[in-house]
Design a protein around this nucleic acid. Structure first.
Length: 271
DNA sequence: ATAATCACCTGCTCGC
DNA sequence: TGCGAGCAGGTGATTA
């Protein structure tokens, strides 16, 4: 369930239950995630207070006094708050037992997610060290996209999904932002004008911010329940609508594959 | 350096 | 009803 809005919604949902709590125990049932959960992680986290619950790109960071846990949900991961005695189901790989009598449970059928560790120095982990700017920050704008894209021949959709350029733009929102900006996803990144990149950057911010805002209404789902926040599919204008009609011009949408990802656009509205 | 492909997994849908 | 094929929201590693 991993696009940036879902990760941020998850962060907001679990934060009130974690911040200030002491970790009584870390239970790792399945250490074989995308990368192995470090053997010494239970020892590092036991007895520590969770100082804050932060997010960088699609990583959720649990900050302790001696370092930070780095969580990624991969393609199918989810986090939710449970009562400590709730029995684990298949794919419930990790429980973080809290002094509140609750636990943070990490579930991930495909095991593309990860749970790693870095010391007190922030962003030193290899996975975090060379990430581009957050899409909703002032460090990200169309000027940056324009400069970085000069001379680049790859498709603009692939370009905005590259986390060196900007983080957190996954397949769904890349499709949506390009539709909103009226840009064909397969156009060479290096051949798009500065003016159009200014518009595209704005649309990326708008679509992500809107999705986060709407995610906010499902926060209750993180406690008990099934912990799945839904993807606001009803809001999507192109993603998942291949062969259907464009909501603006009523023409048939086109579906292609770009870097093996499903890509949907309108030939008339996007140039 | 850049671009394209592969790989890590399970679960679900589709067509036969 | 069963079974293989193909696909899924991520992204680092590997190959040209």
């Amino acid at each position: 369930m991993p696009e940036l809005p879902e990760v941020e919604t998850t962060r907001r949902g679990i934060e009130p239950h974690l911040q200030g709590r002491t970790i009584k125990k870390l239970v790792v049932r399945q250490p074989s995630l995308r990368w192995p959960v470090p053997d010494n992680l239970p020892r590092l986290m036991k007895g520590k207070v969770i100082q804050s619950v932060e997010r960088r790109a699609k990583y959720i960071l649990l900050k302790l006094s001696n370092g930070s846990a780095i969580l990624h949900l991969g393609m199918s991961g989810s986090l939710r708050i449970i009562e400590a005695d709730e029995p684990p189901m298949a794919h419930d790989h990790v429980d973080m037992m809290l002094d509140s009598g609750q636990a943070l449970r990490f579930t991930d059928p495909r095991r593309f997610g990860c749970l790693l560790w870095q010391g007190v120095k922030e962003d030193t982990h290899k996975l975090l060290a060379s990430l581009g700017p957050e899409p909703l920050s002032d460090q990200f704008d169309g000027e940056r996209l324009f400069q970085l894209s000069r001379g680049r021949k790859s498709a603009v959709k692939t370009f905005i999904m590259d986390n060196k350029n900007v983080v957190g733009v996954g397949n769904i929102y890349a499709n949506e932002a390009l539709f909103a900006a009226g840009i064909r996803p397969d156009r060479a990144a290096g051949k798009i004008s500065k003016q159009r990149y200014l518009l595209l950057a704005d649309e990326i911010k708008i679509v992500l911010a809107k999705a986060i805002e709407q995610g906010g209404t499902t926060l209750r789902d993180f406690v008990g329940g099934d912990g799945k926040p839904g993807y606001f599919k009803q809001q999507l204008k192109v993603y998942g609508r291949g062969e259907e009609l464009c909501l603006v011009c009523k023409g048939e949408l086109t579906e292609i594959r770009l870097g093996q990802r499903s890509t949907v656009y309108c030939r008339r509205c996007q140039r």
